[in-house]
Amino acid sequence: MRAIKQPRGFSVLLIVALCIPPALAITGLASDILGGTRYFGSNPIKEGEHFLGRWTLRLLVVTLAVTPLRQLTGWNWLAKHRRTIGLFAFGYLTLHWIAYAFLDVQLDWTDLKKDLLKRPYIYLGMTALVLMIPLVVTSTKAMIRRLGRNWARLHRLLYVIAILGVIHYAMAVKKDLTDPLTYALMLSLLFGWRLSRWSRKATTAARTVGSPV
C-alpha cells in the first residue's frame, strides 16, 4: 500500500486534544468544589468521577482502534501515536481513581478496603488499573526493542483491560445498560477484526508450510 504522510501538526494537535478532557475535569471540579458553581451539576464529585471513567473507556477504545484503522486506511504514521493515546488513557484512569479515592471516598481506609475486597466492580476496575502498569512501563523505545515479539504479546493485555473496564461500567450503572452495551459492541467489532486477521495469517502460514516446494 502507498505510504501516506502524516498531516502537518498532527502530533501537536493530538496532544492538545487529549489534554482537553482532563483539563475540563480538573478546572470544572475545582470551580464546583471551591467556588460553588455547577459545571458538573449538583453532585460534582460523582459526576466528575463518572466523566473521567467514561473518558478512560473512550480512550481505551480509541487506542485499540488505531491498528485496525491503520490497516484499513494505510495511514502507517498512525502507529506511533498509539503509545501516546494509550499513555493518556492511563492518565485518565489515574485521575478517575484519584476522583474515587480522594474526592469520593475521601481516603476513608475502611471504605477503601471494603470496596476493594467486597465489591466486584471495584476490584475488576482495580485489576484493570494494575494491569495497565506493565504496559506503561514497557512503552519506551528501549523496552519495545528489548522485548521483541513478546512486546506485542504483552500489549494484547489492553483488550483484557478494556473488557474489564466495560464489565466494571456495566456493574456501576444502576439499570440502564445501553451505554455499556454500546462499548461492548465496539470492542467486539475491534476484536473480531483482529481475530479475522490472525486466522487469515495463520491459514496463509499453514498453506506456505504445507505446500510442496
Partner: peptide
C-alpha cells in the same frame, strides 16, 4: 455496591 455508613450532602 457501596457503603451506607456515610453520605454526601448535595452542596
Amino acid at each position: 455496591r457501596w457503603s451506607q455508613a456515610s453520605e454526601r450532602r448535595i452542596g
